[in-house]
Every structure is written in structure tokens, then in C-alpha cells.
């Protein structure tokens, strides 16, 4: 299952070349890519430019999310916690693959 997800990620996210160094760096690429996470549309995040202000700035994430699984759940389907939210359900709607979400979680948790 994990291998399948990784395969799909590799196939569909050609951008994640072998050149990308750390997991955090790869997560940043997925998060900032306009065709992938595109989180900057709504969130200010360190290292990103031209961010919107639709959602709160993402910072001090380790303190907000001591448990990484909670952060993953927020990204996978934020409507679970807040049915009125306008943040897209990146996992439920298959906007990102499971493997890509894992990478984004690593990056966001490092903010």
C-alpha cells in the first residue's frame, strides 16, 4: 500500500526528482507548488512569497500540534474539525497523494 502510494506519487508528481534533498525540503516543494498543495494561496509560511490571508499564518506548528497525526488529519480533511471551513480536504478529495501528504506534514511541522 505504501509502495503503491509512493509509486503513484512518483508517477504523478514527476517534480519530486531524486535531486530533492531532505524530506522537509520535498514537503516544502509540494506545499508551495501551485498545482499541488498551493497552501500559499491562503497561508503565510516561512520561505514562501505572495501569500494570501484567507487562513492563519502557519507557524509554531510543533507547539500547536504536538501530535503529528492531528496535523495530518487537519490537512487530510479539515472539514472534520470545522464543517464550515473553506480549506480544501487534500486527502479526502485526492488533491495530494498519501505520500505527498506525509511530506507536507513533515514540512509544516518544521515551521
Amino acid at each position: 500500500m505504501i509502495m503503491k502510494a509512493a509509486l503513484a506519487a512518483a508517477l504523478l508528481a514527476g517534480s519530486l526528482g531524486a535531486a530533492a534533498d531532505s524530506v522537509v525540503e520535498q514537503g516544502k516543494q509540494v506545499a508551495f507548488d501551485r498545482k499541488k498543495g498551493n497552501c500559499l494561496t491562503c497561508h503565510q509560511m516561512e520561505g514562501g512569497t505572495l501569500a494570501g490571508n484567507w487562513g492563519p499564518p502557519l507557524m509554531a506548528m510543533k507547539a500547536r500540534y504536538p501530535n503529528k497525526e492531528d496535523l495530518r488529519a487537519q490537512i487530510w480533511d479539515p472539514t472534520k474539525r470545522n464543517p464550515m471551513t473553506s480549506m480544501p480536504p487534500f486527502g479526502r478529495n485526492g488533491i495530494l497523494t498519501e505520500a505527498e501528504i506525509d511530506l507536507v506534514v513533515e514540512f509544516v511541522h518544521s515551521l
Binding site: 503503491k4 509509486l7 503513484a8 508517477l11 504523478l12 478529495n93 485526492g94
Partner: peptide, 14 residues
């Protein structure tokens, strides 16, 4: 075949 399967799974999920 591998690419076809990954794409088909993606399409089904969507």
C-alpha cells in the same frame, strides 16, 4: 501497465 493502473486508481478515487 503500471502507469495505467496508477492512473486508473487515481480516477476511481476521484
Amino acid at each position: 501497465a503500471d502507469e495505467a493502473k496508477a492512473l486508473a486508481e487515481q480516477a476511481l478515487f476521484w
